[in-house]
Design a protein around this nucleic acid. Structure first.
Length: 324
RNA sequence: CGCGGGGUAGAGCAGUCUGGUAGCUCGUCGGGCUCAUAACCCGGAGGUCAUGUGGUUCAAAUCCCUUCCCCGCAA
């Protein structure tokens, strides 16, 4: 089967890798977003999907948009029977959706119709969900509204963050897409319309989502931190005004929550500098123990390292990083 | 030439403005205390202060210049 693959981040690269290995499938072309200036010096950095495609010797196309019809030429050249999409980032217009004999299928990172949209994994963690998954679906012109081909649940463990969960889901997505292709060949594919009930949208993560506010229940602070790790990371403002990214946290002990009672949310009640260290911060309800941070201009480090460097002490108050 | 931060002991930092004995919190090693300990006490090892047989100076981690590397923001 001739397919064109569309995707961008590491999650999508995992799917591409599985398709490339699959027998009876030929990934004849890969479509990904244009390289963007990244990092210092505006260096152009290729996305994971592009890197993988190049190493596999698959032609890569990086149209800025598909809407202008220029992509028709690529379709005509490769005549795909199926288009597989995973976290591509561009909207597919109808002329693309209608071209392949078997249509366009997508591996979405949630159990649809819940969390349609750009950031389903982050939103699920942020909301404290205990289960999410992959939905294999036919694409239509709506945002993640097409018929469901299969659902593959995945538990969100207590110690999962966006990074680990995305890794798990990527593997599931890869298997799901291979499964869909098998079903297409066997003719056992059964598209089922999505129920409207339970539908919700997972808006793209923005700057305002990254600003961490301790004036919230500890559980919610914990969920936000892990939803945002490893990127862009929850961020707070230190007493000196510098931003501090937070990569990991754990629940504080009952005793520590006791100490935090009555403290202004954001107050550091304990700065433990031994071993990995813990920075216990009072929340509106309870407290969280920060365990990993990234100071401005520094590398990621444990809370213990940060405390040992004397950058924080009990009594300091962490405030909300306000919009510029 | 997009903006900014940084490179000092195994880790995280201070010291640099106002040149003059290499410091702190940990870790590590040895000893002690203890029923015991990741707790406490005592002691030790470990650093060409990123780079340049650079410049200035009686004297440079510190001031000036070179090169390399790392990171954040912005996109």
């Amino acid at each position: 089967m001739r397919i064109i693959f569309m995707g961008t981040p590491a999650y999508a690269a995992e799917v591409l890798d599985a398709l490339a290995r699959k027998e009876d499938v030929t990934v004849s072309a890969v479509v990904t977003r244009p390289d963007k200036p990244k990092g210092r010096g505006m260096k152009l950095v290729p996305c994971p999907v592009k890197e993988l495609a190049l190493s596999l010797g698959i032609p890569v196309y990086q149209p800025k948009t598909l809407r202008d019809g220029a992509f028709q030429a690529v379709l005509d050249e490769y005549e795909p029977e199926l288009i597989v999409v995973a976290a591509y980032g561009n909207i597919l217009p109808s002329y693309v959706l209608d071209y392949p004999k078997y249509g366009c299928v997508n591996a979405h990172g949630s159990l649809l119709p819940k969390y349609r949209g750009a950031s389903p994994i982050q939103r699920a963690i942020m909301d404290g969900e205990s289960v999410t998954g992959i939905t294999a679906m036919m694409m239509d012109e709506g945002i993640d509204t097409g018929d469901i081909l299969g659902t593959y649940p995945c538990a969100i463990e207590e110690d999962d963050d966006c990074g680990t969960l995305t890794g798990k889901l990527a593997k599931i997505a890869a298997a799901a897409m291979c499964g869909v292709i098998d079903m297409i060949r066997e003719g056992t594919l059964t598209p089922t319309p999505q129920p409207e009930e339970g539908a919700c949208y997972a808006a793209k993560i923005g700057r305002e989502d990254a600003a961490l506010d301790f004036d919230a229940p500890a559980r919610s602070v914990f969920n936000r931190i892990r939803a945002l790790n490893p990127s862009p990371c929850a961020v707070v403002k230190l007493p000196n005004g510098d931003p501090l990214k937070i990569t990991a946290s754990k629940a504080a002990s009952a005793e520590e929550c006791e100490k935090a009672l009555g403290q202004f949310p954001g107050t550091v009640v304990l700065a433990e500098g031994r071993g990995e260290g813990r920075i216990v911060v009072a929340c509106r309800e309870g407290a969280v123990a920060l365990t990993g941070v990234i100071p401005a201009g520094r590398k990621p480090m444990s809370a213990g390292d940060f405390v040992r460097g004397r950058k924080i002490a009990a009594g300091d108050i962490l405030t909300v990083m306000k919009e510029e």
